[in-house]
């Protein structure tokens, strides 16, 4: 009963994911849904950092890139098992995040934005330049992901894998938000000094959530690489970072399902905009500005307030 109440949106989401294959006409649409799911999970991790903890990262694609290229390089050049490569990528990304975060989080203001931005750009440049391993700007192929002799390939198999991962991520994120850890995180966003006085070691929590979001970014980078079967430096690009932050903000900061909506809308948008031939960038930018000016808190919180009068997602 309490599970039903706590997770009613999650149950609806599960039902939708279960029924969706009945209406998806072909692989093109499967592909779009899969990309939406990957983005939604990435954005969820980033929203924990930006929306809930109030810390800005402008280089998250760097971590995605680390995961993607770990999964590309280690099996191809060194014969690692893809799962081991995936774990290695996530470990490297987390380690870098941890090393960078400690000194940065002692500072106040926009310095994390600057540091993450730098980190992301450096990662992208390294990937472009170390062509012997990465294939340079042209990218490189990625081996297929096989689990115990069962190869995950083709849109349909990936759909089910990602549906499960997506549901798990949203369940775990909801749990985290409602836990002592999650409350401490939101409290330090609300009032840093008050949370300190309550016993929250602010720097430790910021580092922990930053590392966690880097970890998941790297995992999803690996998943993306295996799904597409090919990686290019674009995955670690500054634009990709911005795209992810935009999904967080458009969907709604500190809103779990805002992450889902933001990811769905912004993944669909470029497909929809392709009819504008040449004007995509302009229209994309204009939509961003428009949304932020008229719905600065993002879609889901704004609509929730308008129609439900709900104060928070806490219940």
């Amino acid at each position: 009963m309490s599970i039903l109440r706590r997770h009613h949106v999650l149950i609806i989401l599960a039902a939708v994911l279960l029924l969706l294959p009945l209406v998806l006409p072909n692989n093109y649409y499967y592909d779009i849904v899969i990309r939406m799911a990957i983005n939604a999970i990435l954005v969820l991790g980033l929203n924990l950092l930006i929306g809930f903890a109030g810390q800005i990262s402008l280089g998250h694609a760097g971590f995605v890139g680390i995961g993607a290229y770990a999964s590309a390089i280690l099996p191809t050049h060194f014969g690692w098992h893809p799962l081991l490569a995936m774990a290695a990528g996530a470990t490297i990304a987390s380690a870098i995040a941890a090393i960078v975060a400690r000194p940065i989080f002692r500072l106040k203001g926009h310095y994390l934005a600057m540091a993450t931005l730098g980190l992301g750009i450096i990662t992208a440049i390294v990937i472009k330049n170390e062509a012997a391993y990465t294939g340079g700007p042209d990218g490189m192929p990625v081996v297929a992901l096989a689990l115990m002799g069962f190869e995950i390939s083709g849109e349909k198999k990936w759909y089910w894998v990602l549906a499960v991962v997506l549901l798990f991520s949203f369940w775990a994120a909801r749990n985290l938000i409602d836990s002592p850890f999650g409350r401490a995180l939101r409290a330090l966003h609300g009032s840093e000094v008050a949370s300190q006085v309550m016993g929250v070691d602010v720097v430790r929590y910021k580092v922990a959530i930053f590392v966690l979001s880097a970890f998941f970014a790297s995992l999803m980078g690996s998943v993306t690489a295996h799904y597409i079967g090919f990686v290019t430096p674009n995955i670690a690009d500054f634009f990709h970072s911005i795209e992810l932050v935009t999904m967080v903000v458009i969907g709604g900061m500190a809103s779990i399902y805002g992450s889902l909506i933001g990811a769905i809308l912004l993944t669909a948008l470029p497909q929809a905009l392709s009819t504008f031939e040449g004007w995509e960038t302009v229209v994309f930018g204009a939509i961003l500005m428009f949304c932020m000016i008229f719905m600065p808190r993002g879609l889901v919180p704004t609509l929730a307030q308008r129609f439900g009068g709900r104060e928070s997602e806490g219940d």
Binding site: I50, I56, L58, H110, A113, I242, V245, T246, V248, V249, M253, W279, E280, T281, V282, V283, F284, G285, A286, I287, L288, M289, F290, M292, I293, P296, R297
Partner: peptide, 21 residues
């Protein structure tokens, strides 16, 4: 009155519009 991230996104939107045009 919006949060810093929101304002950052607005300026990024503006930069995309300018560059696109």
């Amino acid at each position: 009155d919006a949060e810093v991230v929101t304002l950052i996104i607005i300026t990024i939107g503006a930069s995309l519009v300018i560059r696109g045009l």
